[in-house]
């Protein structure tokens, strides 16, 4: 019955079928992602509110659950202002350049063993490449706005993002050394065996424990890379009033917002896949599955919000010092340690 139905549908679309099928898969990823972004903003406001002993949004719908939808509708009905001195086309293209890479990176993220839009061998390389594109949207936005705050924000953002990309790159290289593959699915599979996994304690065999310094470097760099607090001098309200986004309004602003949160979820997904065992279950007797990945991503996202509620903002020179003078030496040392470890008879990644 199902086969007949499938053949019938394929017959209707004819040669266009692969396109339609892939588009369906993409929609199945992008639609929940955008919904996740909307509710991450709600979650953020609620979590931070409770940490501040407030209630947070509670007017629109029960518990304020419709709040993100209302925010989106409001932004849709707001005028898109193009400032008089701005470079109009660059100004309008910049939000698209920010959101397109933030979404396109999801093409290679596996959600469970063999479940993803595309399973290519160079997936980590693809993510590295496409995630670096995000900085263009921000620089062009700051440049095109012809506003001093936007310009300063863009300069800071560019310097900060490229600085932390280096330590992130070293963390990725170390993960590659122990996983023997650039394929994200293979990297997760490489984490389900080891001494502890043999005892049923799989969560101690995941990369986070032997690569603990790299895990921390990657997580903190991820916070800096997405311009989140405490590294949010790029858009600090009290000094450069939203930085590169200061002149944007309406849907153009909404796109920057979407891009920032989509990037946060992406970093959470990558941290879970590279260091926290992806969809693997933490103990031997429970089954693996997507819900483990979802739980790990939610945990990392909660950390993002927790950081924002807890830490005061760093100064820009402190951010640069942390990136260049702390993280790069730490990651170089641990890279060498892992290399020597794998050469020695104590190698645990056979």
């Amino acid at each position: 019955m199902m086969d007949m139905l499938q053949q019938f549908i394929q017959g209707v679309f004819g040669p266009a079928w692969p396109v339609v099928w892939n588009l369906l898969k993409i929609v199945a990823v992008v639609a929940p992602l955008l919904l996740g972004v909307a509710y991450l903003t709600y979650f953020e406001r609620k979590v931070i509110a409770y940490m501040h002993v407030r209630i947070g949004p509670n007017r629109v719908g029960p518990l304020g659950l419709i709040q993100p939808i209302a925010d989106g509708l409001k932004l849709l009905l707001k005028e898109i202002i193009v400032p008089s001195g701005a470079d109009k086309w660059v100004y309008l293209i910049a939000p698209g350049l920010a959101i397109a890479p933030a979404l396109a990176a999801w093409a290679v993220v596996p959600f469970a063993d063999g479940l993803g839009v595309a399973n290519i061998d160079a997936s980590l390389l693809y993510i590295m490449a496409i995630a670096s594109m995000g900085v263009y949207g921000i620089i062009l936005a700051g440049w095109a706005s012809n506003s001093k705050y936007a310009f300063l924000g863009a300069m800071r953002s560019a310097a900060q993002m490229v600085s932390y990309e280096i330590s992130m790159g070293f963390a990725l290289v170390t993960v590659l050394m122990v996983s023997n593959s650039l394929n994200l699915t293979e990297i997760v599979r490489a984490q389900d065996h080891g001494i502890f996994a043999g005892m049923g304690l799989t969560f101690l065999s995941w990369n986070w424990l032997p690569l603990l310094p790299m895990f921390i470097v990657y997580l903190v760099s991820g916070v800096a890379e997405t311009n989140r607090a405490p590294f949010d001098v790029v858009e600090g309200e009290s000094e450069i009033v939203a930085g590169h986004m200061v002149e944007y309004s309406g849907m153009a602003f909404a796109l920057f917002f979407l891009a920032e949160y989509a990037n946060m979820i992406l970093i959470a997904a990558l941290t879970s896949l590279l260091f926290l065992g992806g969809w693997l279950s933490p103990v031997g007797f429970l089954p693996d599955g997507f819900f483990w990945l979802a739980a790990k991503m939610s945990f990392v996202l909660f950390l993002f919000l927790w950081f924002r509620a807890t830490f005061p903002r760093y100064r820009f020179d402190q951010i640069m010092r942390l990136g260049w003078k702390v993280f790069i030496p730490v990651s170089l040392v641990w890279f060498t340690v892992v290399g020597v470890w794998m050469m020695s008879p104590l190698n645990i990644w056979k």
């Binding site: 588009l23 959101i99 396109a104 595309a118 693809y126 849907m251």
Partner: peptide, 23 residues
């Protein structure tokens, strides 16, 4: 294998353009 990725990038660009047109 790379075809879905190309399609995904196009969808990403569309999501970057459509809201601005709509707004």
């Amino acid at each position: 294998n790379y075809f879905p990725i190309l399609l995904f990038i196009l969808v990403g660009i569309a999501i970057g353009v459509l809201p601005i047109v709509l707004g």
